[in-house]
Design a protein around this nucleic acid. Structure first.
Length: 637
RNA sequence: GCCGGGGUAGCUCAGUGGCAGAGCAGCUGAUUCGUAAUCAGCAGGUCGUGAGUUCAACCCUCAUCCCCGGCUCCA
């Protein structure tokens, strides 16, 4: 018998087998349900056709490709279940997404939660039947004919847009779907599946086209992993900044005031004040100058800047003031330019760095507003740097360092960095775009930062670096942006005097670190689950009394802490100590000091503190306690 | 803006074409208590807003505002 050697790699482990059959068996044993041959994902059964010399990678749920194939197959089963329960349904697309999959259907009536349950139940039955996924290749014409006869208009539209002459159709238990594949070997490969929600979605994302019904779901290889995922979703819900914002009395949004407009309550405001103080102090240390600018200005300003041409749909309607049109500001940059231009600048003055916590107003469609994350009025931690061309590289490096320092202080240590290149709509010359893009790239590489290129995602006036932070649940949020601008200096005729005494054109850099204070605050709430670190938290210490006779002494302790700049509050409610501790815990106050007979007798030399976690520390003298708290506040831990 | 689901006490939520409900929070009283909920009582509402149908509307119809899940968009 001929010995065929097939080399396999499964989850970074290497194997050798004698025959395709053995290989397939081994792959299945090791949890692989598809393979990668020559960089292309394939069916497990494709192994018999694989070239003999190549290495075959088994795809398991541990790989991104594996997860996609697995969940894509789950989407197919979802469609199968819908076909059985809703014969009138027409099928659109059903891809795998970040944490699961979805499938879009055209149905006469929207799905109800009960429908979802029934569909999920039917999916489990289909999985139990364990029919194999069978790949059939046919010509595009044959497929068009087949789906045309079935009345699957969405499939035929997809087919028409395909370039390939040969297409594949996967059949599983009598249900056939147009699909590039690959799929798992059989329906039974799917071990744990759950449908999560249903929502409207436009066919091909185009709001002019038909609204379809999209069912979202997720799938895992083990019930325990699905359970873990459901717990994560539960945790996300628990941390929802809108919920915590209400519970901790941080902010509110009031219908009578307007959608997308934030009221900062005292507890939120003190956090914001702390964030702002930190931000301003650090900017001054980093040689920025602080500015303040008005909330409105003449419309002409935004005609000059180009915003009126490019982003009018996000700006509010102008208002007439004594026959002159004014506009509520969507951006701070024209003001900073005006400050720059208020005097003659020399090449020796550059770089000029202006920073402002500038509140801007942008029109957002009602359907997209979302708590603090998407609002109509927000404060940007904005800065504009005017620099000579030869200073750009160094300046970007400084900004990158500064940005990471600020983000780090707020507890973010993981980042994804993106470099966005020229979009379709743009101004400026190709040369200036190339120059700016290179400057950003060089700075990133100099800092040894990993980044991805985001083609065509630049702003109309220049390329940019975006930084996404990863929160404590691993979710990525885009906050920081660093944008080079060759356009506005031109439009506003911004100059400096060069060494030769002649006017030169500076380059502008726009940058925001937190982005929007509102949104960043929302992210912080969810990141910390409302349990802010000591330096940020609204109430740093609760002083709790056992009985009324301890109130006077407790007041002295709280006063002493406040005198040291610590945000301390008393709780003299007529409640048992257990209840007061609970109140502090619910309010997520980091430290509690309990004052009873013992503490009063010791005269404040033996104070113990109870941490938010339940742990207790001490005993401390009052001054040792104060020092401990002040140190923790200072280090911003 | 679009599709779907919602809006009832400060919060979370139940409810019915015929008297508006609970828990928590609040207030009052009792209790004075040692590390996550003491007991009792009281008060709390134009049932999102406006119009309509009806003898009667929180409930049905229409409009409108806002919220939620998505789509789309995001300088």
């Amino acid at each position: 018998m001929e010995v065929v050697e097939i080399r396999l790699v499964i989850d970074d482990k290497q194997y050798e087998t004698a025959s395709a059959g053995d290989a397939e068996k081994l792959l299945k044993q090791r949890g692989a349900f598809a393979i990668m041959v020559d960089g292309r994902p394939r069916e497990l059964s494709f192994i018999s056709q694989a070239p003999e010399d190549g290495v075959i990678h088994g795809l398991t749920f541990a790989s991104k490709e594996g997860r996609e194939i697995y969940r894509h197959s789950a989407a197919h089963i979802l469609a199968h279940a819908v076909r059985e329960l809703f014969p009138d349904a027409r099928f659109a697309i059903g891809p795998a997404i970040e944490d699961g999959f979805y499938y879009d259907f055209d149905v006469p009536a929207p799905f109800t939660p009960e429908d979802l349950e029934a569909i999920e139940k039917r999916m489990l039955e289909i999985i139990k039947r364990n029919s194999p996924f069978v790949r059939k290749e046919m010509s595009r014409g044959e497929a068009l004919d087949m789906f045309g006869r079935m009345g699957e208009a969405y499939k035929t539209e997809l087919l028409e847009s395909l370039q390939d002459e040969t297409v594949s159709v996967y059949e599983e238990g009598g249900f056939a779907d147009l699909c590039r594949g690959p799929h798992v070997p059989s329906a039974g490969t799917i071990k744990a599946v759950k449908l999560l929600s249903v929502a409207g979605a436009y066919w091909r994302g185009d709001e002019k086209r038909k609204m379809l019904q999209r069912i979202y779901g997720t799938a895992f290889t083990a019930a325990s992993d699905l359970k873990k995922h459901m717990e994560l979703l539960e945790e996300i819900k628990k941390r929802d900044h809108r919920k915590l914002g209400r519970e901790l009395d941080l902010f509110s949004i009031n219908e009578e005031i307007g959608a997308g407009l934030i009221l900062w309550h005292p507890n939120g405001a003190i956090i914001r004040k702390t964030m702002e103080d930190f931000w301003r102090d650090e900017h001054l240390k980093a040689s920025y100058k602080l500015l303040y600018s008005p909330h409105m200005a003449r419309l002409d300003l935004w005609k000059t800047s180009g915003h009126w041409d490019f982003y009018r749909e996000n700006m509010y309607s102008p208002m007439k003031v004594e026959e002159v049109e004014y506009e509520i500001k969507p951006m701070n940059c024209p003001f900073h330019i005006a400050v720059y231009k208020s005097g003659l600048r020399s090449y020796r003055d550059l770089p000029v760095r202006y920073a402002e916590l500038g509140t801007v107003y942008r029109f957002e469609r009602s359907g997209v507003l979302h708590g603090l994350m998407r609002v109509r009025g927000f404060t940007q931690d904005d800065a504009h740097i005017f620099a000579r061309e030869d200073q750009i590289g160094e300046e970007i490096k400084l900004i990158l360092d500064f940005t990471l320092f600020i983000l780090n202080t707020f507890g973010f240590e993981d980042y994804n960095i993106y470099l966005s290149t020229r979009p379709e709509k743009y101004v400026g010359t190709d040369e200036s775009w190339a120059l700016a893009t290179e400057a950003l790239k060089a700075a990133l590489e100099h800092k040894g930062l990993k980044y991805e290129i985001d083609p065509g995602e630049g702003v109309f006036y220049g390329p940019k670096i975006d930084i996404k932070v990863k929160d404590s649940l691993g979710r990525a949020w885009q906050c920081s942006t660093i944008q080079v601008d060759f356009n506005n200096p031109e439009r506003f005729d911004v100059t400096y005097r060069g060494e030769d005494g002649k006017p030169q054109r500076p380059i502008m850099i726009h940058r925001a670190l937190m982005g929007s204070l509102e949104r960043f605050f929302g992210i912080l709430i969810e990141h910390y689950a409302g349990a802010f670190p000591l330096w940020l938290t609204p109430v740093q210490v609760d002083v709790l009394t056992i009985a009324e006779r301890h109130n006077e002494f407790a007041r002295q302790v709280a006063d002493a802490l406040r005198k040291e700049g610590i945000r301390a509050e008393e709780n003299f409610d007529n409640e048992k100590i257990g209840y007061k501790i609970r109140q502090s815990a619910v309010r997520k106050v980091p430290y509690s000091v309990i004052i009873g007979d013992r503490e009063v007798e010791e005269g404040g030399t033996a104070l113990s503190i109870r941490k938010r976690s339940g742990e207790s520390l001490g005993p401390f003298t009052l001054s040792a306690l104060t020092d401990l708290l002040k140190e923790e506040i200072k280090t911003r831990r």
